[in-house]
Each structure stands twice: as C-alpha cells, then as structure tokens.
Nucleic acid binder design. Structure first.
Lengths: 229, 229
DNA sequence: CCAAAAGTGTTCACAATACACCCATGC
DNA sequence: GCATGGGTGTATTGTGAACACTTTTGG
C-alpha cells in the first residue's frame, strides 16, 4: 500500500500580525481597514498569505514590513488558528505572530495606504474572523513573557526614562507598580545603562535617560536567565 | 483593484505529534517507522495531514488516537514548522502538537501495526525531516510548563506514589530534587488526595498511593493559579 | 536483626512587599 | 517660594534551599 500525497487536501496558509506599540500612555494595537471582500471595510489585523518559497517567519516579516516599513522587529510566532469556516471564502489556516514595535518608528505613508490606525488596547473595535481571539492570545502571551523576560525595550525609543519603562510594564501587566521596587528589580537585571542626559519634557527637575544594553541582555538570556516582575 | 483568493499558493498542512510517556524510570517518546517514501523505514513522529473539515486540534487527536487508541488525552499545540523543503515531495506546513500519556494505557496492537516503539528521551534515534527540532521544542515547553503548572498527572497511572511523581519531575526537569521540599510544594498545591492504600511493590514498608483531584485543580487553574517548582 | 525505602521539620538566606520623605527646577 | 515629578532606603514577611534521622517490615 503506497501513500499518495496528491490525495490530501490542500489549504491556504495565512499569517496575521498582532502589532503592539506603546505611546507613553497606553499599549496600542495597529489595525487595518480590510480592503477586499469578505468583510471589506471592517477592522482587521494585518495579514497575508504564505507564498510557495517563504517560511512562516519570512511571510510574517514581509507582512509587517509592508505595513510599517520596518524590518528587524521583535516578532514571535503565537499560534495556529484553524476553524474550518474561519475564512468563509476558502479553507485557510492562519498562523498568528505578534510584534513589538516602537510606535514612533513606522512609516506614516504606508499606514495611510492601508487605512491603518492605532487603537488603545482597552478600546479595540470588533475584528473580523477570529482576530479577536488572536489578540487575546497575544496579550496573554505578552503578559506572561513580560513577567519572566525583560521585554518592552522593543516598544520604547532608544533612550527612555524609568518612568516610561515602568508605565509600559504597568499597561502590559494591567496593574500599578511601586516606583522603588520597580527600579530595584530593573537595576538587578543589570541590562540598562544610565546616561548622563536628562529628559526635561516631563518635569522641571528632568529625569535621567537610560539605554538598553542589548549585548549584555543576550548574554544573560543565552545563560537561561529569567526574572520575576 | 480586487483581491482574488485563487491566485494564492496552497500548501499541504500536516500535524505531527510528540507523544511523551513515563515508565517509572525514564521519560519516553513514541516513534513510528515511517511506512512510505520518502524516508521510508526511518524513525519519525506520528503525523498526518489536515483534512478539509477538521481543525488542527481535531487532526492531532485523530492522529494520536490512530496510533494509541486513546482519546481525551492531554495535548497542546506547540509550533508551526514551515521550512520550504522540510518535506521534499510537496510544500507542507506542519503544526506540531505534544501529548502526555500514561504509557500503560495504549493499545499494543496499534503500536505493532505502525511499527511504533518507545524510546528513552536520552536515547532517541535520528528522526526524519525537522522532527528533531520539533522534539527539542516540545521538551523545552514541557520543562517550562512543568515548572509553572502541575503537570505530569497525565503521565502517571491513576494512583501513584510520591516517589513516582517526584521521579517524573526529576526526569522532566533533568535534575534531582529534595524529597522533603518536593513533598512540601506538592502538598501546598493541594490537588492530591492521599489514599488509605499502599503500594507494596517498591519497599517493605510500602508507600501511600495518591490520586490527582482534577476538579480542584481545574478550579485553581481557572483562578490563574501557577506555582514554582 | 538488618537492609531498603518511606516519612517527616527546622534553620537560613534571599527576594518580594510595603511604605514616606527630600530634591531639583521652572515658573 | 512653591508646585511638580524625580529620586532614594529600610523594615517585615514570605518563599526557596539545605539538610539527617526515625520508621516499617519482609526476609
């Protein structure tokens, strides 16, 4: 009895990107207005179909780059979604990815072309298909990740204040943190460099800027380092 | 400009199952001898293709059940693998699942039919395609999961001794644990029921048997309970 | 009576938490 | 000189880790 690959069912394979950003105030999600039927004009995650000669990672990066102009962004595969009728037109399996980007970095012209818009995470509209499910899974994963790995540097500008970093953790984790305890833990991680410069926009006194020491961080991660926020 | 689903590339979608078992001694992996070309006769994870009217979860359960005769097994989606040439015959995306089963439970006749065999995790042969990569990802996930959720009850017989449970944790985590500390932590979780019965096979004195209180466990999990081993 | 595994508590070190006041500056 | 956000330390509690002796009983 020989096996024949041809008798098996094929499917379209898509990737959808949950794109998170942060604007000093709120965790945000980048959505597009869907440009074609079905569900044309509704809010949707940015997605695209996997091409013959691409891996899923490559496809997800392509999709993200089409919308934001960014490459080399932090991205992680999230989960495969496969309800039979999730796309009413064709059987489509979608593999969701989530990305963390610095909200200031993207190319606004591209956003316009896709009628894309940032939404506060607490104020996301209804999404097409199973995209809301994807979003909640991404949030869950981001929260867990945040409490075991220093994350969020991807979401901040290169230089940032402690206040901004703390605010970011607060919006991701959905709880307020104590200023002193937060700084203690962050300093223990030993992956920040305190600069001489101050940010003078937020207060009269000004607050010191920090940079993320990526090299030191990657050394630690490869040693299996995690922490507990 | 309208969009046409038909111009997109389709692919075969497969599921592959990393099936873990435990035999009081070692963590084990269930492999089959591949029955068809390419790589016929080589060791492989049990897999199968996604059918038109199935979700990935359903397909993974079907595949597992074909090999073991078991349903209602603990199973979790792991990751989507998509290297372009991972299957040399046809473009195939594979979504890996891992399963935890009680090694005593399976149907030996079915194993025979697939020329399947259990291997100690420390002694796994070369696997076809990217299956070794799947396995290492599964092990990593199992280890992480084990240190935050009570796991492993799926891998044990219904009634088990503390010694067995500890041994299981030890082989999953790959380190020895202190008997007293282990019991303390497990008892804190409060999901075990100590039975009046003893297992007399392991020592003269005999050791008490325990059962897992699934209901209490599920209540806890839905309250967001995790622990640290 | 002895071999072999089961069972059981305490101490110590470190990490998490709670908490409040002074500082620097622009206006 | 005062209002605003920035910066800093300590005391308490809880949790993880290390550690050794007694019990049971079949042979």
């Amino acid at each position: 009895m020989d096996f024949n690959y041809n008798q098996e069912d094929k499917a379209l394979v898509a990737v959808d990107c949950i794109i998170f950003g942060f604007d000093e105030e709120d965790l945000k999600l980048l959505l597009i207005k869907r440009a074609f039927e079905p569900e044309k004009g509704k809010w949707s995650l940015m997605g695209g179909f996997l091409k013959k000669n691409e891996t899923l990672d490559v496809a997800a990066n392509r999709v993200l780059s089409n919308l934001t102009g960014l490459n080399d962004v932090y991205m992680e595969q999230l989960y495969g979604f496969s309800k039979v009728d999730r796309d009413p037109v064709e059987r489509t399996i979608s593999v969701a990815y989530y990305a963390l980007i610095n909200i200031k970095d993207h190319n606004p012209k591209l956003l316009d072309e896709h009628s894309a818009q940032w939404f506060s995470i607490s104020d996301v509209p209804d999404l097409i298909f199973d995209h809301s499910e994807m979003l909640s899974k991404a949030l869950e994963r981001l929260r867990r990740r945040t409490s075991t790995n220093p994350v969020g540097f991807e979401l901040l500008p290169k230089k940032f204040t402690m206040r901004q970093l703390q605010k970011l953790y607060e919006v991701i984790l959905g709880e307020e943190l104590d200023k002193r305890n937060f700084q203690k833990k962050i300093k223990q991680m030993n992956v920040l460099v305190k600069l001489k410069e101050k940010d003078m926009t937020s207060s009269r006194k000004g607050s010191f800027l920090y940079e993320f020491d990526k090299k030191r961080y990657e050394e630690k991660v490869s040693d299996g380092f995690t922490f507990k926020m």
